[in-house]
Design a protein around this nucleic acid. Structure first.
Lengths: 351, 351
DNA sequence: CAATCTTGTGTGTTCGAACACAAATATAAT
DNA sequence: ATTATATTTGTGTTCGAACACACAAGATTG
């Protein structure tokens, strides 16, 4: 009932009239305990709420726990750069819990790289894994292996069905799309035609974009908005090509009052959009260096923060909770959907 | 340079050719050490970066640290209720670090209550204090006493000049006002007249309201907005009176496109405002139960989250870092300025 | 030159949990 | 009954830091 003051194994032993060793065996069900002794100890354990002293535990076990992190290279994107920063900070913060974190980066364009690096980590059999499973099939394959090896893992950024991570860290992506729609709705008295822009990836292979688009469209359906919502896919980066594609795919569109870019690469299209469609609200993702410029100069109106920093940090924190402190952790951790404008940008940057 | 693996006191003793006891005396400068020994040990200590094993340390010291929390009663406001929840959660999370937290509540309308409760806490001389210093002069007086008693304290919600808390947790209030202005600016193509509404307190004694108003006005000044920005003070709660006051103070105002309410009590005026001024954007603070209803029903457009939950939680976390782990903590922790709409509300609620 | 005091130094115990190993008891086989 | 074997239970050591205490060497006194 009440927390009780800190009873130790010795106390329990006394209460149950057995030796500390027996209590220890019961607690860890190491067997070699008679039914009678087991019963006695169990009763006492039930009675008081025994909570082992984490300090003594960790001291003895000298868990020099090894965590592995598998994450795209920081050069691949401002998004991943920020995630790396979160990892770095977490390592600093949790250092003295005796954890040993090894970070491995892979090329976010090469599934094969992902797989080979993951296999390498598997062969080192760390005590825990934090991973960004951005490739669906590859992730499924490799993480099943980790499950079989009994290595707990935490995922972030992407959620893969049919897997059982100790914790999946991420956001509600459909809701994220709805939020973008909501902001556009707020900002335009008269909502006109709308653009959804998928940048740089094949949306068919990127479930997160689909889910965001879905949420975005759903929002306006319920509002009985009958103007056009056009999806555009721009796989290239060159500004010239971007304009070409806009001409080709949206050349005939007029009265565009909102553009929703489903990735952190929004800065690439923000200016072309703004100059083409006057007063169009531009929404994208994440305060990366380029996007911060966009927010400040006004080409981007809102950013939704996917918070790779916090996601990555939380990932290490969850592994620590699980493996160092033996806590139960929730299988899913949904991060908030932060809205960033020019005026609250700084409050998200300085930590 | 590098972190080095975990060297223990014994290792250091061996390296310096002295006994562990001497090393211990040097580390804690307990005196009784010859200059020669001191020099030898110091050299080694400098060399390797000795980091004591927190587990062994805590186990031995059996720090049953006592923290005191002084905070307004949860009945006083949804804001404080949420803060209490943050405290409760933090106590659960940090329980096994052997901290013993005592929460004391005071009536947020009675400075005398604040002072007497604070003195009571002082007489118990806890190891650390988390406090919401909402009364300027009283807080200054009492916290100076804590400083003299050598009891470290963390403040949240309000920042008091001339004090040196171990950490001040809060938000940039001026920026918070600017953000509100920014949102209104975004939502109205044609910004009309604007209202600033201070509810339920005497703004003269509530510096936070002043700072918010200041930021709000500053934003529009830089935009060369020449319409009227009118401040209204409504000290009462009764809906009837609210309408009276609105009639009296803003009866002649037309074309009001935005209302900024500087506290969590925004739900009290949201409906009167919305029905009086069509399409007026209403912005207030904090997702309290009543405000959540307002957001959902559409009488409130945006809430800025002051995040009492996280502020309170962080307060306990900071004290723990400081006193349990002996970490250095930043003297100021600015929380982000979250924008809440109907579509990201949930993501802030479930934790 | 002993007796006493000062300072410096080393040793030993403690915290609570984990686990190895020894001791005690129970069960089986001869 | 007696040795052999399995099962259960108890004891002791370890982790690293903190601190009490004992002992050593040097300084001071009568």
């Amino acid at each position: 009932m009440e927390p009780k003051k800190n009873l130790t194994i010795k106390d329990i032993a006394k209460l149950a009239n057995v030796s500390p060793g027996t209590v220890d065996r019961v607690i860890h069900n190491r067997g070699k305990v008679s039914d009678k002794a087991l019963a006695k100890v169990s009763v006492v354990l039930e009675e008081i709420q025994y909570k082992p002293n984490v300090f003594a535990q960790s001291l003895k076990k000298q868990k020099s726990l090894s965590f592995s992190v598998l994450i795209p290279r920081k050069e691949d994107d401002g998004y991943w750069r920020t995630a790396h920063e979160g990892i770095t900070r977490a390592i600093e913060d949790f250092d003295h819990f005796g954890i040993d974190v090894k970070v491995t980066s892979f090329n976010s364009k090469l599934p094969a790289d992902f797989t080979s690096k993951a296999n390498e980590i598997l062969s080192e059999s760390p005590n825990g894994l934090l991973i960004t499973p951005i490739f669906l099939q590859e992730s499924l394959d490799i993480l099943k292996k980790f499950e079989n090896a009994g290595i707990p893992y935490v995922t972030f950024n992407t959620k893969i069905p049919d897997l059982n991570p100790s914790c999946a860290i991420g956001q509600n992506l459909k809701q994220s799309g709805r939020l973008a729609a909501n902001l556009i709705d707020h900002c335009c008295k008269q909502v006109g035609n709308l653009l959804i822009i998928h940048l740089d990836e094949n949306p068919g292979n990127a479930p997160h974009m689909i889910q965001k688009e879905h949420g975005f469209r759903e929002y306006f359906q319920s509002k009985n908005h009958h103007l056009e919502i056009k999806s555009i896919v721009i796989p290239h980066r060159e500004p010239a090509l971007i304009n070409d594609i806009l001409n080709k795919q949206a050349g005939d569109l007029r009265n565009v009052t909102g553009a929703f870019v489903t990735t952190a690469k929004v800065h690439l299209v923000a200016y072309p959009i703004k100059s083409r469609f006057n007063d169009c609200v531009v929404i994208g993702y994440d305060p990366t260096a380029n996007n911060i410029d966009g927010i400040k100069s006004g080409t981007i109106d809102f950013l939704i923060n996917q918070n790779p920093y916090m996601a990555a940090y939380e990932g290490i924190a969850k592994l620590t909770d699980l493996l160092v402190f033996g806590k139960n952790i929730d299988p899913e951790k949904l991060l908030p959907l932060d809205i960033i404008t020019s005026e609250n940008l700084d409050s998200y940057l300085l930590n």
